[in-house]
Design a protein around this nucleic acid. Structure first.
Length: 414
DNA sequence: TTCAATGATTAAAG
DNA sequence: CTTTAATCATTGAA
């Protein structure tokens, strides 16, 4: 302790013997006289003030030398550690303890939202590529893809700004932190600063910067929300599908009337054909099924139309099929097996097309004859002529009573 | 302007 | 997840 005492004396320029250093914030105690503090203290303060006032009179070299001597004093580390400890025990440590804060729920919410919107988080190269591919796949024929890419572009713009700003903040934060740390380390040579204190300081800086980041995140969130709402509005603005698309969808629907539930693959196929998305196909079929079921009569004309259309298509397909001599060599030349081109064949095709039992009675009012809802899964569903949708054809065991017995002959022929 | 048609969204159910 | 049923919101024709 003797060394420390002397050290203190050197530092304060006064004799502190016999006085406790616990009074951290109080002025250095006067030297010499134990217990007789009255006039002595005043004089000591005067001395100190004088020293301070005249410090500029010292030559720089002299001051530097003094400083150096002080820094090199072998008891300095020990003394500083004690001083640091004292500091810890006084106000500073209390403040530090109070600043232990739990993760801000608000910040968490913002983070989650940014993550969900794809602004923060992993680089969404795949997502953007997929979106671009989707936009390209839809052929650019619809405004939808344009709007979508527009949204994407704006979002990535926001994303970019967000990231550059974030990076800037982070860089500034790191710079400032290292600067402060260096400063404190430098200062720790001349005044007691514990590593813990530096740590705390770093914590304070980080908190400050993260509050700035939160503002950034908040404004980014706002921007995304605005963009999103605008885009959602735009998305709600529907466009009717093209006539061709509706045609294709209706064709599929009415030729699968007993089971109008396209498989995933079928949906994809239809989506591709119609230049719409799979979910749009799903929407369309959902709407179509419910609206058809609600008012079959209203759709009768349409049903007949498409049934006839598919029948004609099928007839052509079958015609081509049957007239292929390589398939039926026993039939001889194509001439010897004349396909009936009109009425007869047409009706055959109608019955061949197991699904379009509505269409089998073109022009008739079928409503009364439809004993069961055509959507009932118990309806017969015979394989289609078109091989494309073969995979989802389903042959049920029971025949609908209202339906005529069916075409085993044709099928056998095929 | 009206209104049926239609694509999209939603809750509920499985 | 998919589907149904109801509903919303826009479109396009009258």
């Amino acid at each position: 302790m003797d060394e420390q005492t002397r050290m203190l004396q050197t530092l304060a320029g006064v004799n502190m013997a016999g006085h406790s250093v616990q009074g951290g914030m109080t002025l250095p105690p006067p030297h010499g006289h134990d217990g007789t503090d009255g006039d002595g203290r005043k004089q000591d303060i005067g001395d100190i003030l004088h020293q301070i006032m005249t410090i500029t009179d010292q030559s720089l070299d002299e001051a530097q030398a003094k400083k150096h001597a002080l820094n090199c004093h072998r008891m300095k580390p020990a003394l500083f550690s004690v001083l640091c400890e004292i500091k810890e025990k006084t106000g500073l440590s209390i403040r530090g303890a109070q600043e232990e804060d739990p993760p801000d729920p608000q910040l968490m919410r913002l983070d989650n939202m940014l993550l969900a919107e794809g602004v923060s988080g992993p680089e969404k190269g795949t997502g953007a590529a997929a979106a671009a591919a989707a936009a390209a796949a839809s052929g650019g024929s619809s405004d939808n893809s344009i709007e979508h890419s527009d949204y994407r572009a704006k979002l990535s713009q926001i994303r970019q700004i967000y990231h550059t700003e974030l990076e800037k903040y982070e860089q500034a934060c790191n710079e400032f932190t290292t600067h402060v740390m260096n400063l404190l380390r430098e200062q720790s040579r001349t005044r007691p600063i514990s590593p813990k204190e530096i740590e705390r300081m770093v914590g304070i800086i980080h908190r400050k910067f993260s509050s700035i980041q939160m503002q950034l995140k908040q404004s980014t969130c706002e921007a995304v929300m605005i963009l999103r709402s605008r885009f959602l509005d735009a998305r709600r603005k529907r466009r009717n599908f093209s006539k061709q698309a509706t045609e294709i969808l209706n064709e599929y629907f009415y030729s699968h009337l007993s089971n109008p539930y396209p498989s995933e693959e079928a949906k994809e196929e239809l989506a591709k054909k119609c230049s719409i998305t799979v979910s749009q196909v799903s929407n369309w079929f959902g709407n179509k099924r419910i609206r058809y079921k609600k008012n079959i009569g209203k759709f009768q004309e349409e049903a007949n139309l498409y049934a006839a259309k598919t029948a004609v298509n099928a007839a052509h397909a079958l015609s081509n099929f049957l007239s292929d001599p390589s398939l039926f060599p026993f039939l001889g030349s194509s001439g010897s097996f004349n396909l009936p081109n009109s009425g007869d064949m047409y009706m055959n095709m109608q019955s061949l097309n197991g699904d379009s039992y509505q269409g089998a009675q073109v022009g008739a009012n079928v409503q009364s004859q439809v004993g069961e809802t055509p959507l009932s899964p118990s309806s017969v569903h015979l394989p289609q002529l078109s091989p494309k949708y073969m995979h989802q054809a389903r042959v049920c065991t029971q025949l609908a009573p209202s339906r005529p017995p069916r075409l085993s002959g044709h099928l056998l022929l095929l």
